[in-house]
Design a protein around this nucleic acid. Sequence first.
DNA 1: AGAAAATCACCCATTTTGAGGGACTCCGGC
DNA 2: GCCGGAGTCCCTCAAAATGGGTGATTTTCT
Lengths: 209, 209
Amino acid sequence: MALQNIRIVIVEDDNLIRDGFALLINSTYGYTIVNAYNNCEDAIKHLPEDAPDVVLMDIELPGMNGIEGIEKIKRLRPKTNIIVVTVYDNDSLVFQALCAGAGGYLTKNMQPARLLEAIKDIQEGGAPMSTNIARMVVSSFQKNRNSPLTARETEVLELLSKGKSYSTIAEEIFVDKETVRTHIKNIYWKLEVHSKAEAIEKALKHKLI
Amino acid sequence: MALQNIRIVIVEDDNLIRDGFALLINSTYGYTIVNAYNNCEDAIKHLPEDAPDVVLMDIELPGMNGIEGIEKIKRLRPKTNIIVVTVYDNDSLVFQALCAGAGGYLTKNMQPARLLEAIKDIQEGGAPMSTNIARMVVSSFQKNRNSPLTARETEVLELLSKGKSYSTIAEEIFVDKETVRTHIKNIYWKLEVHSKAEAIEKALKHKLI
DNA sequence: AGAAAATCACCCATTTTGAGGGACTCCGGC
DNA sequence: GCCGGAGTCCCTCAAAATGGGTGATTTTCT
């Protein structure tokens, strides 16, 4: 079988970490660091020549940050697999990175060997994540189990959040428009809001829908 | 250090698979199968006595299906960790299961040892997933990179999808209401729709927002 | 039996929406 | 230097949607 050599680019501003990763990866058969940068701008400039299969991307960087970097790289070479490697594990950054196009997310407290596994995993169609990141991602799907809203109210609010009008909602759940109005009035009262936008905002924030 | 014995319940209607899992797990130190059922109803009935830390749940089951089962179990014992183990890997089922409260999702083509890893992982705050499932989950965050909409139009549509009115959107992005109206007219033209609800529906479907 | 949930009704004023026109900048690519 | 896309703003019009108030009946579950 032909050797499939995985071409890897590192973007990381800490020299020690960058060189450490490079050494580890280069000394592994089948993995090659084609280049290592300390900022996104340079990495993007050399993207055509480097032609990486995988980019290991830090988030906090001088100049363009990692999130923007991910976006630009994915726009220029959509097939590039990007794994974020960072110390940050707060919700906002993780979801921003994934939305921008990251295919994996590791926090720097991993064992070095995990890095190699992750590269292999993402090349095989996986999405390598540190345990805490995976949990955050999965949790993001789950609703609040202590919603003040009834099942029907939740259903109505969900349809409302899809931009549907009272009349459309009424048709879809086979009740009168007046009933929908009553449900919405009760929703507003329970959520202590006075408009559709406020209700949706609060519902999303508390994961009621 | 005190032995931490993980209490596990299996819900799986295939006798062969169920007994296989049970044998594997019971023969591993620190893991105990407290009970194994071939349907959700029985598992839920015995939930208080079984007091499982982890439930391994199949999806296709006689009677109540796995999704409903997950919901009920999480409602009764929210701290129970549920791992779905199934042959199905289509988007809809995966997201339904995660929304219902599953904390992990494995497809049955795994190596048996993966099951033990997964149980350990979920007990330690992770979210074990098969590679293809992880990729599906991560992909669900990513937007279509070939949107027909401009950046501004996307921004407007995003705000519209949060239930905001033209005037509110105008205020938030510091332009005139008339400008918002123009953007929305262009959005409708590009998406070939004639209302807010249709636009949002189409945008969500094609992951434009 | 009582409470919570779900259903429908009617009033009113205001805001929002969708569709049709037209017009003016600013900027990047050719 | 010109063209076109993107973004901005303006006007009119009629229909639809929204939010608030008040009240009432039925169903469901405990």
